[in-house]
Design a binder for these strands. Structure first.
Lengths: 111, 111
DNA sequence: CTTGCATACCTCGATAGCCAAGGTATTATA
DNA sequence: TATAATACCTTGGCTATCGAGGTATGCAAG
């Protein structure tokens, strides 16, 4: 099932969150994540493009080609389904971080 | 290489942190993590034991057999090297969480 | 005008971390 | 005396991620 620890899943979460604000294209997303995280997290194109394709297949994203300045770009937008997926992953991250912080803080151990 | 996104690495971080406080044995660690995180994170024995062996091989842990109440247990303790490793991973987690929060918060995008 | 860099898309193979499931043996409990 | 809990371990498989590659266009420099 691969669920318990959420093997990171950070790129997916970030992509969904970015697309919540506005449509973006793959290359732009790659740059945006690196920029906004100061390169702390910087998934390459080999991560982002397959994720975009998978998310679209899953109905979380919707794509459309647009020609901008002679260039052809594939813009992605969040669907309602994608929004729910984002909410779920964001909540999961919060809970995951809480778990890590709890152990790092130490001291108080229930049970 | 596999470094940029820190593919979780949560179990390792937690093990090192637990052993910073006191010696523990594998089975105990498995229970402790599940308990302290309310099962949000609950790596099984198939995760913990190989990690303990790997960390010991890497010089981050030191083990010794102890007989407790007729039972034989392998207790692990943190070495100086393991302490540095813990510091590094903990810092990394903080920075990683900061990156995720930054993207989730959205709005302000530097650069 | 051609070399090279940034843009923009994509795929592939390898690896690492995690997981479930199993296996052994002992001790406590019902 | 069966069953659950303790305590150790390994194996095989999956998935996310990574790096490196490949194609093609636009633009700037030389």
């Amino acid at each position: 099932m691969a669920d318990a620890v959420l093997a990171a899943g950070i790129p997916e979460l970030m992509i969904l969150r970015l697309l919540q604000d506005r449509e973006m294209y793959g290359y732009e997303i790659v740059q945006a994540i690196a920029a906004r995280t100061g390169k702390v997290v910087a998934p390459g194109e080999g991560v982002v493009y397959p994720l975009l394709h998978g998310l679209e297949r899953a109905g979380a994203l919707k794509s459309r080609r647009r020609a901008v300045g002679g260039r052809s770009r594939v813009y992605y937008g969040l669907t309602a389904k994608g929004g729910r997926r984002l909410d779920r992953l964001a909540a999961r991250w919060t809970s995951l971080n809480g778990a890590v912080e709890a152990v790092l803080a130490g001291g108080a151990h229930a049970v």
